[in-house]
Design a protein around this nucleic acid. Structure first.
Lengths: 247, 247
DNA sequence: CGCGAAATTGACTATATTCAAAGCTAGTGG
DNA sequence: CCACTAGCTTTGAATATAGTCAATTTCGCG
């Protein structure tokens, strides 16, 4: 975006650990609360991990041993009913934080929806950092409040919207997080679906057949286009918002 | 519960502000993070407010001016769709915290489900306290994490459970929060419904007729008893858990 | 007792699910 | 390069679950 190579934060930039330089969490995630020196310390206890699409990062009721920031990709948070019914309770993208601090057990499975890169740090390290750095805890509280808001917004979708509205809401959510302007028509938004139909169904509280039917309907209405089952173009965002029932 | 009058916290108890003495928030809410002296200061800027059943405490998209702890009663958090469809996204009981720190606008309406008493404090006071007292912020983070967990648990109910399971889950939630052992049969749990059928429907993502039918069914199955439309007795909690689809 | 609000019950309908079959798509090996 | 396969997706027909509309009953309260 800038024509010069001048760094944006001239004072700090040189001291930023190499691994953190390109990491979104440093600018927008919880690490933004850390000073260069703290970040340097922190970076000695973190490690990068690549996770392929479909792999589970942590299981429901596993013991909590680690936390992580998402560096790239998307993860899905799922909850299970005892008879196997499943609900995806959240999608998270870079540079969001994964993990539930201060609890012994997690009640959620975290699975890589796309190929994912995460920056992992041990439970004790994070908890120390939280104790020593009120700013850090503050940043985490802010992120948690956003997640709470997202969860409650999605509850309206789950409880009160029709299948058509749910699918439209889902596509808008993705356009918002990972959509890019289409090269040929910049008012269109393009993205790759990070979830297959069955997962979309688990996110929307529908069956995969219903999701498929509604996608087809939206396509025939001209609101969207889908190629190769997962390349989506949103032609008319306002129209899709109207279809989604708003919020 | 205790036969002697000896206070539980001998050192502090004498210094606790009178209004805080019987308040659940002091023991279990965010105020538990405050020392006696801090509590004394804090209590000078708080005020008690009684709100009758049905009254709205703050409207969706109102500006945030206050926060509060619930001293007694239950409040419902609701979200609206533009065409009027409504979803209750949370029920809160004493001594929980109400309000969304650090944001200019709230995206939720807060309404008294029963007659409610709250302890109100100005936005700036709370935010100062949070800055000065990391423990206080920590306690708020913990409560927020619990609310996030509750919200996600409820998402499973909304997205994946049948009407019957939803109603059973709702009754179990209430038994858990406000249920008391029945005088005649202590294995039974009794409580008053804080919501009318239309509200229960908005909480469960159903219509009021469906809620009514499922209540009748549960009554005929012998799992519960309802008198005067709002006095509920749960006869067999395990049975109700089985019906609820577990979690 | 009588009124208004809320809850129940009934009959019918709509929406999404279920079960089943056929069509794509991407990847593999001949 | 094409055929073959495995996994997903789409489509169709029949069904079930919850929603809608309407009538009746119960409850709370003056």
């Amino acid at each position: 975006m800038q024509s010069t190579d001048r760094p944006q934060f001239e004072i700090d930039e040189a001291d930023i650990p190499a691994g953190c330089k390109a990491c979104g969490a440093r600018q927008f995630g919880i690490c933004s609360a850390l000073k260069a020196s703290e970040l340097t310390h922190f970076s000695t206890v973190t490690r990068r991990r690549k996770i392929v699409h479909g792999e589970t990062i942590s299981f429901e009721d596993d013991e909590v041993v680690d936390y992580a920031n998402i560096v790239s990709g998307a993860v899905k948070l799922t909850k299970l009913l005892s008879d196997g019914r499943q609900q995806i309770v959240g999608l998270q993208f870079a540079p969001e934080f994964i993990g539930k601090p201060f609890s012994e057990k997690v009640s959620i499975s975290v699975e890589a929806a796309t190929d994912v890169e995460i920056c992992v740090f041990p439970k004790t390290e994070l908890e120390n950092m939280l104790k020593q750095q009120p700013d850090f805890e503050h940043r985490l509280l802010e992120q948690t409040l956003i997640q709470l808001d997202d969860a409650r917004t999605w509850m309206v979708t789950l409880g009160r919207k029709t299948a058509q509205e749910k699918v439209a809401s889902f596509l808008l959510l993705l356009a918002d997080h990972i959509g890019k302007p289409a090269p040929d028509n910049p008012t269109d938004s393009e993205f790759m679906l990070p979830l297959k139909r069955a997962d979309i169904a688990d996110f929307l509280g529908l069956t995969l057949e219903t999701v498929s039917r509604q996608m087809t309907k939206l396509r025939k209405m001209g609101a969207i286009d889908i190629r190769k089952n997962l390349e989506v173009t949103v032609h008319d965002t306002d129209r899709l918002i109207a279809i989604s029932g708003g919020d």
